[in-house]
Computed example of a mutant assay.
Amino acid sequence: MQAATELREIYITPAGAVYQCDRKNRLMVDFAGTLSVLKIDTFLRLKHAIDKIDLQAMVTSTDRSSDVEIISVLGTDKVYVLTMPELHAFKELLAGARFVLELNSMLHECLNAELA
């Protein structure tokens, strides 16, 4: 149970959550019933891969193969197989987490600048 106290909640939606482990310098993405432990750069590559998916094109496509997207990024052995609604929820989760991480970074920079 000690590990649970080392995790900081970054962002939560009804579909999932992102936590940060400062001890191991990792992000933990809890989505679609699985937990992925990612380095920061892997998280950013995952977010970039998700952001590149055109949800509008998936909605308007008549091709049944466009109902599902398969996402795999360098740095993890996890493969995401997501439907369009899941992609939308995952995109929202990752965007919110990235925003909070950037906000925290800017706050630390401001605080350190004032203390110097």
Rank of each mutant, 00 (worst) to 15 (best):
Q2G: 07
Q2Y: 08
A3Y: 08
E6I: 06
L7R: 12
R8L: 10
Y11G: 03
A15S: 13
A15E: 04
G16R: 01
Q20F: 13
C21Q: 10
C21E: 08
K24A: 14
N25A: 15
N25V: 11
R26N: 11
M28D: 05
M28I: 15
V29M: 05
V29T: 06
D30T: 06
F31N: 02
F31H: 04
A32L: 08
A32K: 02
A32V: 02
T34R: 14
T34A: 11
L35R: 14
S36F: 04
S36W: 05
V37E: 06
V37C: 06
V37Q: 06
V37K: 04
L38P: 03
I40H: 15
D41T: 13
D41H: 13
L44F: 09
R45H: 08
K47C: 00
I50G: 00
D51G: 03
I53E: 05
I53H: 04
A57V: 08
T62K: 14
R64G: 06
R64M: 11
S65R: 15
S66F: 11
S72N: 10
S72Y: 01
V73D: 00
G75Q: 05
G75P: 05
G75V: 04
D77E: 14
K78H: 08
P85M: 07
P85F: 05
A89T: 03
A89G: 03
A89D: 14
F90M: 04
F90A: 00
K91S: 11
G96R: 02
V100F: 07
L101V: 06
L101H: 03
E102H: 14
L103P: 01
N104W: 12
N104T: 08
L111M: 12
L111H: 08
N112T: 14
A113F: 10
E114A: 13
L115P: 01
L115N: 11
